[in-house]
Design a protein around this nucleic acid. Structure first.
Lengths: 120, 120
DNA sequence: CAGAATCCTCTAAGATACTG
DNA sequence: CAGTATCTTAGAGGATTCTG
């Protein structure tokens, strides 16, 4: 394979080093609900809070709120609140989020394709 | 972007559904130490236990052991124990693990490249 | 509808010590 | 060297209630 050294080259400090800032972003992106939210939004159309709750099946309100806040502060997700009543809020990917999702989707497809094929 | 529907097509049951087996594999792969171990091994050469501990900086013995067991049972990582004393054990990626790593590396490179650019 | 606030539980994960 | 065993705790995460 020998894909790497590129990795080390790209990030001199080392993604492996304990206090590398990438660890934080990595944890956000790779978190259980973070992945699912990014994936759900990767389809292009903005989604509403309630739609996201249904898509990421099993997520609690608390975790969805937390996940969205985190991803928003990472500039991966954008929040658009229409000033109507009842409230109408939509979430979508930022350009950065779209870049990330472009990597996430094939990965997820691979994972989905291989899930259940081995003893878990 | 509109990358998806492919996702749904590929996995009819939906990767988003709560008890989809992909959730389990996803959690293993996306776990903090899982990613780092897979990444470390993606460089091609097998690594020894102690080398992995150094590479995945901050990992505890317990978590490394657990991570390796999990990844091995998912058929992503292989363990080769040479019957010598003192023990000499090497870990490497399986073919499946290499496929996965091929997706993980560009993702990680993106993450590394974007870490620290926004308020965290 | 889209959350915020609160409480509570459980387990992921770290620290430590021991061993084949 | 390459782990396992045990103990402990922070905090991730769930359930419920409340509100602009």
């Amino acid at each position: 394979m020998q894909v790497s050294n590129e990795l080390r080259d790209y990030f001199p400090d080392g993604v492996f080093s304990q206090h590398c800032p990438s660890r934080v972003l990595l944890d956000h992106v790779m978190s259980k609900w973070g992945v699912l939210v990014l994936l759900a939004l990767s389809e292009g159309e903005p989604l509403r809070w309630s739609e996201l709750r249904r898509r990421a099946e099993g997520v609690s309100e608390k975790m969805l709120a937390q996940t969205l806040r985190t991803l928003a502060s990472d500039d991966l997700v954008e929040r658009h609140a229409k000033p109507v009543v009842p409230p109408h809020v939509e979430y979508s990917l930022t350009p950065a989020g779209q870049e990330l999702a472009a990597h996430l989707v094939p990965l997820m497809r691979w994972v989905a394709g291989h899930a259940g094929e081995q003893r878990v």
